[in-house]
């Protein structure tokens, strides 16, 4: 009983905060009319065009497509390479200097050379997104693979599993909690790289839409674009968490936490 009362209270406070922020915005827009801060309704109209109307296909979907492809490449590639490195001491020693160097290059800095080599193409943008995403996944996979319970590996060896089978049937699963932590970070970075890659030599995508709106002094479009990015980030993270809960349902139980 008290539990549900608390929940209703928390929910109403959350709603009040959002409503309060919107009210301040609207008040400021009405009190100081001008191009810097458009009224809520104008932003909403632009937002709706982005998620529902004509702009969906030229702004939102191209961005989403590139983000998802780049993220998937980074997730699969980072996991495979990372698990292999984490399982092999010689591979680890051999690749460490290169990885330690590459991981400190900000993904943004890779944009000009990527543009130089690949041109203003989808491939270039996907590459930049994948580059931004891959390091958290790679490092999480290496770390996860190194911290697999030694008894799991002994059990696998006693059951006749070779190196590849051990990675596929044991290390991959045991490292999954660590991998998902890496994927969550990667998704945030991917979102950043998605927007940035569309600010240079682009003709579609949300980043391009925001930039164009700003140049045309369509401030409602600028704000709507930013809000759409927030929405995409929120939805994708929720989706990832949902997948994580399904894949890692055993992990909570194993750690002695309540399973829902």
């Amino acid at each position: 009983m008290t539990n549900s009362v608390q929940r209703i209270r928390a929910l109403s406070l959350q709603i009040m905060l959002i409503a309060g922020l919107l009210a301040i915005w609207q008040w400021a827009a009405v009190t100081f009319p001008g191009p810097t801060l458009p009224p809520l309704l104008a932003v909403w109209r632009s937002y709706w065009r982005l998620v529902q109307g004509d702009l969906l296909h030229t702004a939102v979907l191209p961005s989403l497509y590139r983000l998802l492809i780049g993220f998937l490449i980074a997730a699969v590639g980072g996991a495979l390479i990372g698990l292999a490195i984490g399982c092999s001491r010689s591979l680890d020693a051999w690749s460490r200097p290169v990885l330690e160097y590459l991981r400190y290059i900000p993904a943004i800095a890779i944009l000009p050379p990527a543009l130089l080599i690949l041109g203003p193409t989808d491939t270039m943008r996907i590459f930049v997104i994948a580059f931004g995403c891959i390091f958290p996944v790679l490092l999480a996979a290496i770390d996860g693979a190194k911290r697999v319970e030694p008894t799991f590996l002994d059990t696998a060896r006693v059951n006749g599993l070779g190196a590849i089978a051990r990675i596929r049937r044991v290390v991959l699963f045991a490292a999954m909690p660590s991998l998902f932590a890496g994927l969550r970070i990667a998704l945030g970075l991917g979102l950043i790289m998605m927007v940035i890659s569309e600010l240079i030599a682009a003709d579609n995508g949300i980043g391009f839409f925001i930039l164009r709106s700003q140049r045309l002094f369509q401030s409602a479009g600028v704000y709507a674009g930013v809000l759409v990015i927030g929405t995409i980030g929120w939805l994708l993270t929720a989706g990832l968490l949902l997948v994580e809960r399904r894949v890692l349902h055993w992990h909570r139980g194993w750690r002695g936490l309540p399973v829902d």
């Binding site: 319970e149 008894t151 799991f152 002994d154 059990t155 006693v158 059951n159 006749g160 089978a165 049937r169 044991v170 699963f173 045991a174 999954m176 055993w250 992990h251 139980g253 194993w254």
Partner: peptide, 27 residues
């Protein structure tokens, strides 16, 4: 040759059911 380890919590695979754990070596 097979082994039973002391720490079952670290030798039984927590992502597999009892049945799948038992069948692990019969791939």
């Amino acid at each position: 040759l097979s082994i039973v380890f002391q720490d079952y919590n670290r030798s039984l695979f927590p992502w597999l059911s009892v049945k799948q754990n038992v069948g692990f070596g019969l791939a």
